[in-house]
Simulated assay, not measured.
Amino acid sequence: MCAGCLPISWSDWRGSGSRGPAAHGWTDQRWTPPRIAVVIREVFRVSYTARGVAYLLRGRG
């Protein structure tokens, strides 16, 4: 796998992420890199650090 590549598609993430942070147990509606890393790990069983998530998001614009 290449560095910076997600083994999931962005449409997969949008499906999980579109429910919002509250659907994943957080009380506010802010997505942060650490929260996104937790959801990726729980939903897709792939581990990313918060820094790795931030790197991937920067690449997406």
Score class of each variant (00 low, 15 high):
49 T>A: 10
37 A>S: 13
48 Y>I: 02
33 P>W: 06
14 R>K: 14
7 P>G: 09
29 Q>C: 08
50 A>E: 13
17 G>L: 15
27 T>S: 06
19 R>S: 10
60 R>W: 07
25 G>E: 01
16 S>W: 13
54 A>H: 09
34 P>S: 09
19 R>H: 09
51 R>P: 09
32 T>E: 12
34 P>T: 05
47 S>Y: 05
48 Y>R: 03
30 R>W: 09
10 W>P: 15
16 S>L: 14
41 R>M: 05
51 R>N: 11
6 L>F: 05
7 P>E: 06
53 V>M: 06
43 V>F: 08
5 C>P: 11
54 A>I: 04
1 M>V: 01
3 A>L: 12
51 R>C: 07
12 D>L: 14
20 G>Q: 08
40 I>F: 03
21 P>V: 04
5 C>E: 11
34 P>R: 04
42 E>F: 00
31 W>K: 05
50 A>M: 06
11 S>L: 14
36 I>L: 04
7 P>Y: 04
16 S>P: 13
1 M>A: 13
61 G>Y: 15
51 R>T: 07
31 W>R: 03
53 V>N: 03
38 V>L: 12
4 G>W: 00
43 V>G: 08
48 Y>Q: 02
60 R>D: 11
38 V>Y: 01
61 G>V: 03
58 R>K: 11
17 G>W: 12
55 Y>M: 08
51 R>V: 12
23 A>H: 15
7 P>I: 00
35 R>C: 12
31 W>T: 11
12 D>M: 15
20 G>R: 08
47 S>P: 05
10 W>N: 13
14 R>M: 15
1 M>W: 10
10 W>M: 10
7 P>T: 05
2 C>G: 15
28 D>I: 07
46 V>T: 11
2 C>K: 14
32 T>S: 09
29 Q>K: 10
39 V>A: 04
33 P>N: 13
53 V>G: 02
36 I>T: 11
59 G>A: 10
9 S>F: 06
46 V>K: 03
59 G>Y: 00
8 I>H: 02
58 R>W: 00
24 H>L: 07
13 W>L: 15
3 A>I: 14
33 P>T: 10
36 I>A: 08
53 V>L: 08
